[in-house]
Amino acid sequence: MPELQDPRDRLIVALDLADVAAAEALVERIGDAATFYKIGYRLGYAGGLDFAARLARRGLKTFIDLKLHDIGNTVEEGVRSLSGLGATFLTVHAYPQTMRAAVRGAAGSGLKILAVTVLTSYDEADAREAGYALPVADLVALRARQAAEAGIDGIVCSAAEAVSVRGEIGPDRLIVTPGIRPAGASLGDQKRVMTPGEARAAGIDHVVVGRPITGADDPRDVAQRIVAEMA
């Protein structure tokens, strides 16, 4: 798997907060315990994209988690626009046409495209309800294989599927895992989870952690302990 120079880069703190002021305050509280932040729908649509650019100018890494999926031209041009933010990662859904368009849109920039296989809030019943005939594990493997063929930089999947995904994408692409919960933390709406240590042992490159950090009395301490556990 790709090696990282700074072990803090393995932890991505999910800034799933209501506004930029709250996100700025949290980043300041965490300080140098974390170097990588995720901005999704909630914050992204409340000024978070400009905030991501500011974080990048400060030397921090950002993960824009918008899970793009549309006709090819729309995805390509959207990715091209987002590539100017200085972000490190951007997500798209792992549909072949979408992935190929995203790769074209990111060409020539430093932006890495991650493909979301199956949302970690989905279990077998959820997948069946959504109309998928394949079991979750098989669907993840199929989409990971298609992502590698499309030239995607990495995969977002549950830690439970990390070993099979690694087999599909090879050693040089990234695996990024949401649904990570330190031992004893609430699962929230995640159904397929692991602890940070278990995720690292499974060959995960980056773990995404939100509420266990953002809701903690001492978010800096929780971030430090997660990094230490993965190390």
Rank of each mutant, 00 (worst) to 15 (best):
G48V: 02
G170D: 09
K61R: 15
T88I: 01
L60G: 04
H69S: 15
A22N: 06
D32Y: 05
S158T: 02
G72W: 11
G31I: 10
D172G: 13
A137E: 06
G179V: 13
A46E: 12
R58C: 05
H206C: 11
D221E: 12
G215R: 02
S81M: 15
A183Q: 05
A159I: 11
I213W: 07
A147S: 06
L15M: 09
L15H: 15
Y41T: 12
A150K: 06
D221V: 05
I152V: 13
G215V: 10
A150H: 06
G167S: 10
A107D: 01
G59F: 15
M1W: 12
L4S: 06
L15V: 13
V208Q: 05
R128A: 09
P7V: 13
I213H: 00
M230A: 08
F51H: 05
T62W: 05
R128E: 10
E129T: 04
L139W: 03
G179C: 14
I226D: 07
A23S: 14
G84E: 09
I180L: 13
G131C: 09
L68G: 04
L26W: 13
V227L: 03
A25W: 13
A148S: 08
V156E: 10
V156M: 08
I39C: 10
T117W: 10
V116P: 00
R104F: 07
V79L: 12
A144K: 00
Q224Y: 00
F36I: 08
L68H: 08
Y41C: 05
V163R: 14
V163Q: 13
R80F: 11
M1G: 15
A228H: 01
G47F: 02
D218S: 06
A202P: 04
A160I: 09
D16C: 05
T214L: 08
A53I: 05
I213F: 00
I30S: 07
